[in-house]
Structure formats: C-alpha cells, structure tokens
Write a protein that binds this DNA or RNA. Structure first.
Length: 204
DNA sequence: CACCAGGCAAGTA
DNA sequence: TACTTGCATGGT
C-alpha cells in the first residue's frame, strides 16, 4: 500500500496529534534531547523540573553549571550526557548566533542540519525533530517506531535501510509538506505506542 | 527479576 | 559499513 494512503488511514483512525507537545521552541528542543531512548513520561518530569527552576530557556541553559542541570533532568535518564548536550547546544547558539534561535534558523535546511549534527549529543533523529518541529522544515523524522511501522506494512526491506534511506522512502512518495511530515511522524508514534500495548494484534 | 522507552558516540573489525 | 558497548531513570 502507498505511504500516502497509509497516512490517510492513520489520520482517520487516530485524528490529529498536535505535535510537538511544547509551548516554546526552547522547550521543544530540550524535549527532543531529553527523549533520546527514554519514555516520554520521564521527559515530562525533567521538563517540569527545568520549568520550576526557570531553566526552560536557552539563555539560562547556557549559564547553568552542568552538575546542577544534570540533577534537574535526572528523571529522563542519561542525565550527565543530556546535560552536556543541552549545554553544547546553548553554547553554540550563544557564541555563534547571538543566543537567538531566529538567527540560527535563518540557515538553509541542509546547512542547519549539518550545524545541529555537529553538536555532540545530537544525532540524526534529534536534529530532524528540531528541523521539523522547531524550524518547520520539510524533513521526515525516522525513529524506532518508523522502522517497525514500515516492517508491519509491507516495507520489510526498507525498514532495515540506513537512516537517510528510510527517510527517503517516505519523502520520495509524499508531497514535500511540513504539516504532512509533522502529522505523519506523530501518528506513527501513536500507532507504535498502541501496538506495544497490544502485542499480539496484527498490523492495520 | 528482566525488559523496554519518541538515541548517541566511541570503539572494534 | 556493520556490529558492540556505556550511558540511567522509571514503568510493566
């Protein structure tokens, strides 16, 4: 079945997901880093701690010492690495883009992706989440759910390809549309969470 | 008790 | 290029 048709079925089944669940771009970026291989529920606790300490903005993240930051995000796991990553990004923004996301986001999509990937702790999925959900670029996000989704719908071979090729499987068949890519990824995650609770059920 | 969750980097072959 | 390992909490 075509991937556009599968999208329509998911949308009909689950409805719009309203991603990314964040009030600001800084919160979105922090969430993207904190959710690496981590249950979203634990990310929410870390986000709440940051918010309570007034640290849910990039200026504060730039100034705060790593050990203190690490304690606040402890519930999200890998807290030392993630604290370093948050600070790496905040430092890059402060030192090269006057601390303003508007300035960083003036870059073209390819260059912006390269800049994000150069930050230690930001890999392809995290970079693409930021590109799609904060910078509003038409980039398709690939995660573990995306591969399971492909494998469950007749794209067994494609599901095992390298990251960029998996993304290409989608972008080659879909119109280049930010809102479509936004909703599709969110729906795939919704699909994945549903099926991880009902492990014996079939694809659909 | 084991296993997983909206990964990444560094090392090895 | 293709594995393997360390990183860490909280839920089931």
């Amino acid at each position: 079945m075509k991937l556009l048709r599968l999208y329509e079925k998911l949308l009909n089944e689950y409805g719009t997901q309203n991603w990314w669940p964040a009030r600001t771009r800084a919160e979105m970026i922090a969430g993207a880093i904190l959710t690496q291989n981590t249950a979203w529920k634990n990310v929410e606790r870390a986000i709440t701690n940051l918010h309570r300490n007034g640290a849910l903005n990039l200026g504060t993240l730039y100034k705060i010492p790593v050990p203190e930051l690490a304690e606040w995000i402890r519930p999200a796991g890998y807290f030392n690495q993630k604290a370093g990553c948050l600070k790496n990004f905040a430092s890059l923004l402060h030192e090269n883009y006057t601390g303003k996301l508007d300035r960083l986001f003036k870059l073209g999509t390819d260059e912006l992706r390269a800049v994000l990937l150069a930050v230690k702790g930001i890999g392809k999925e995290t970079a693409d989440c930021i590109l799609l959900y904060a910078a509003k670029r038409p980039v398709f996000v690939v995660d573990a759910y995306t591969r399971r989704f492909l494998a469950a719908h007749g794209f067994e071979a494609e599901s095992k390809l390298p990251y960029d090729a998996v993304a290409g499987t989608f972008t080659a068949q879909l119109p280049e549309d930010v809102q479509l890519f936004n909703e599709y990824h969110a729906l795939i995650v919704r699909w994945g969470k549903f099926h991880s609770n009902h492990k014996d059920s079939q694809s659909c």
